Simulated assay, not measured.
Amino acid sequence: MKEYGGDELELFKHAHNWKSYYAGFFRHYLTGDVLEIGAGIGETTHSLCDGSQSSWTCVEPDPALIAEIELKKASGYLPSIVEVKTGLIDVLDHSALFDAIIYIDVLEHIKYDDQELIKASKHLKPGGWLVILVPAHNFLFTKFDKAIGHFRRYNKKMLKDAVPAELKNIELLYLDSVGLTASLANKYFLKQDYPELKQIKLWDSLMVPASRITDKILFHSLGKTVLGIWQKNS
């Protein structure tokens, strides 16, 4: 299985305000049986899985990251309902169906994103939810994106076009308008290849709370992240 080369997972685990912000748009859909693709080191699992779900399946291609998730589960950091599988979505049984499938900062790592989402749709129960969070705007693509294995960044149309047409779009919006200005400043002026922990904490503690306000004012028309939610027909 593929080993993941980036270390931004350790950096962004400190982004508590950010995780809370985006989760507020879809946490209520994460009931029953949930599938998380690209679970990484389990920090998204920790922020979203509260143990009330019937099951929570983490799929991750890197065995080292899977081992970290297993350790966090054994220590009680992750709920006991969490199950881990090493591989890609193809590792699932064809009969496995879920009430919600989430891709949190994962789809941009998958070369053939449309084919991936066709597979995901087949694992959704009728009425089930597909939740996707991705970095926005290819004009913001940097050496950092390339270093951590991003194939692309998205706008709303790109993300919508990647999702099977039979799924009904419920939400499609931009998040973190204040963070967008910081990304633009870095892209064209600072030209920093990799963020530092202090910068992540500054963004999370100051910019994300500000974006909660400005995103509403701007009707989610600007941001450095795209969030999409789809539902499979009952």
Results as ranks from 00 to 15, higher is better:
M1A: 07
E3N: 04
E3S: 07
Y4G: 01
G5D: 00
L9A: 02
L9S: 02
L9N: 05
E10V: 00
E10I: 00
F12K: 02
K13M: 10
K13A: 10
A15E: 01
N17V: 02
K19Y: 07
S20F: 01
Y21I: 02
A23N: 12
G24T: 02
G24V: 05
F26I: 09
L30S: 05
T31W: 06
G32M: 03
E36N: 09
E36K: 09
I41N: 08
T44K: 06
D50K: 05
S54R: 14
S54L: 10
S55R: 13
S55K: 09
W56Y: 15
E60C: 01
I66Q: 05
I66N: 01
E68T: 11
I69W: 07
E70Y: 03
K72R: 15
S75G: 02
P79W: 08
I81P: 03
I81L: 08
V82A: 05
E83N: 13
T86W: 00
G87Y: 02
D90P: 00
D90E: 14
D90V: 06
L92A: 05
D93K: 11
H94M: 04
A96V: 09
F98W: 11
A100G: 05
Y103R: 08
Y103L: 15
V106D: 01
V106Q: 07
L107R: 04
E108S: 04
I110R: 10
K111P: 00
K111N: 10
E116I: 04
I118C: 03
S121Y: 02
H123E: 04
L124N: 10
K125T: 11
K125L: 13
L130K: 05
L130M: 07
V134H: 03
P135H: 06
P135W: 01
A136Y: 05
F139Q: 09
T142E: 12
K143P: 03
F144W: 15
G149C: 02
R153Y: 09
Y154Q: 05
K156F: 06
K157H: 13
L159P: 02
K160M: 10
D161N: 13
L167N: 06
N169Q: 15
N169H: 05
N169I: 12
I170L: 10
I170T: 11
L172H: 04
L172S: 08
D176R: 04
A182L: 15
L184S: 04
N186V: 11
K187I: 13
Y188W: 15
K191G: 11
P195W: 03
P195E: 09
Q199F: 10
L202S: 15
D204A: 06
D204E: 10
D204L: 09
L206T: 12
L206V: 15
A210K: 10
S211H: 13
R212H: 13
R212K: 15
I213K: 09
K216F: 10
F219T: 14
H220E: 10
L222T: 06
G223F: 02
L227S: 08
I229T: 10
I229G: 07
K232A: 12
N233Q: 15
N233I: 14
N233R: 14
N233T: 14
